[in-house]
Nucleic acid binder design. Sequence first.
DNA 1: TTAGGGTTAG
Length: 820
Amino acid sequence: MFRLAPSCKDRRLCKLLPLLQAHRPLFSAAANSLQISPDCLENESREIDFDDLFQSCTKLHHVKRLHALLVVSGKIKTVFSSTKLVNFYANLGDLSFSRHTFDHISYRNVYTWNSMISVYVRCGRLSEAVDCFYQFTLTSGLRPDFYTFPPVLKACRNLVDGKKIHCSVLKLGFEWDVFVAASLLHMYCRFGLANVARKLFDDMPVRDSGSWNAMISGYCQSGNAVEALDILDEMRLEGVSMDPITVASILPVCARSDNILSGLLIHLYIVKHGLEFNLFVSNNLINMYAKFGMMRHALRVFDQMMERDVVSWNSIIAAYEQSNDPITAHGFFTTMQQAGIQPDLLTLVSLTSIVAQLNDCRNSRSVHGFIMRRGWFMEDVIIGNAVVDMYAKLGIINSACAVFEGLPVKDVISWNTLITGYAQNGLASEAIEVFQMMEECNEINPNQGTYVSILPAYSHVGALRQGIKIHARVIKNCLCFDVFVATCLVDMYGKCGRIDDAMSLFYQVPRSSSVPWNAIISCHGIHGQGDKALNFFRQMLDEGVRPDHITFVSLLTACSHSGLVSEGQRYFHMMQEEFGIKPHLKHYGCMVDLFGRAGHLGMAHNFIQNMPVRPDASIWGALLGACRIHGNMELGAVASDRLFEVDSENVGYYVLMSNIYANVGKWEGVDEVRSLARDRGLKKTPGWSSIEVNNKVDIFYTGNRTHPKYEKIYDELRNLTAKMKSLGYVPDKSFVLQDVEEDEKEHILTSHSERLAIAFGIISSPPKSPIQIFKNLRVCGDCHNWTKFISQITEREIIVRDSNRFHHFKDGICSCGDYW
DNA sequence: TTAGGGTTAG
């Protein structure tokens, strides 16, 4: 039931009373709910203004009631009133009732058809609009007029339709109507035929500002920023001044092409000509300043607006969300609601990202529910993708996958988002599986984003051959010079041990941003080539590239892996003092690792205690790792106590601490930690190593005896061990962390998974060819030493990548100088 | 009575 508070509405509705009286039996319920008092009945005049009546209805069910009354009273017979209803229903959001009304109009004229077409366009149902146009021309026997073409040209989604409709325009002689011509220009620009549009434009006998605007926005929408700015200059040279629509078309071009100067000049023009009070203009200014990162300017425009719509709010929310200020963004969202503005689909797209940035798992469910209740998943794939991304970023990967599976339409971005989600949650094999599914479904063409999402997954598992295949596809698709794809390739070659390939690719890509530099620095860092990493950093500064926070993570990691303690400290200060970068937890973690690895455990602990932010698990984990390397049981216990509180589910920390105890023979400590892990339902991650031979990846678990060639592998191992003992190899049994007899200890060392993989590589590949293996955990000290001997005996280069770094063995030496 | 050219996004 609804109330009609304003008296003018009462008066208008009272005009309906004769009808209500006539059909009281049928419409008494309606009359009651209209709350019309009996007094009104007496004073009713007979004139009824349908237009005013419908205008007074702000709710769909008001219109439906009036419609029913009019039908029954026989007043709705004219085409005019019926067509009006087609528009009213659409404006009130009931497209299906609009179509239903249209279908029941027995006699339709051009106005009826035009209305139905433009209704479809207004509701974004573009293919239906074009279909309706064809139905109109083929079945109605009527001729379209010049009102018909602008909406249908706007609705064309391919050039074939566009050209057909252009033929109709020519046949009927409407090509120089300024409205029709503007639509044609825009259509041709959108489909990349700017030359056709330009020819039409030059031939036009009369042009208005709309014609220029159509060319400018057409260029913008096809991504031709330079042409758009050129034609703007031409327009101004001809003395045509910019109107609000010109400005609203050109500001996004400045934003996208990062043309700050033009943007500022246009803002001056806007102020000078009093255009800043136009809603579209202000909204565009907010968006442009946000893209330039000029948040104070964006905020000033927003604050000075006389009226704001949902786009204004979305723009300011997205501006803060994208400048990584989710708290302010969320504040604007709250204020928007207080101002009574209903959020739309795009507000929720920003909100998903805000929730992810705030790491707010609880609210992620509410946001998801809100979107579901409005049925927005059916409306646009973008919102589904945003929700998948939100869950993936929160680490709730199962929910991300469930939402992905339920999406009514999946585009390439949906797939990319899920692949990235798995890869960033450390689930590289799942990411690869999703990529394979995408390839098998044969409906989606991978794009730049796909390569950027799958390459890190290949890097993670060391799948060099798969990575090379992607490289070939990247070349075929001309994406070699895309800085993000190229950087992923540099990273992939680096992480798969092909540092030379990484280098040669690095020199081919554009290097004006920090992104490729970060990759090449990190690549040398994990290979223990700290000096080279530092050289790249200096070269980067010489070339005028500004480092960012990731550069310093790569640089500090490089220092820590190469024992460059004082250099690391210097860069940590340089980052803050010269580049004004506030250290993140990641940087603090690198510093703890830097001190810890070098054996300065006290300094590392002291550093943690003086940190201005609360240390998380990664910080204590770095300290515990260092305690394991240097056998410091006391400090290890301090670190592990903290870890078992803050990240009690991570089994790796229990294993590290029990290893520290085992290493000094403190077996009761080992038992204590193990039972703690067992009580919490945690299981030790089994160690495994993989090797790619003849395009096939073989995986070996420690002590594995199920491989078809296991007998030959163990024969080879015995053979090799005998040879290396004669060269001076003595097994270091302190790396056996079980409390077993001495004889058993040597056997345990021999069956470590990396040795099985290396032995398999030796018997399966030509003599002296290089071997590369990947291990999921860290390589132990005895295996490290053992592999040095193997590289000498077999004259092979052996590359071992473990969960921490690379070990390059050649001629009995490791390139890391045994510092790891 | 119906029409062009304009903004936000994963």
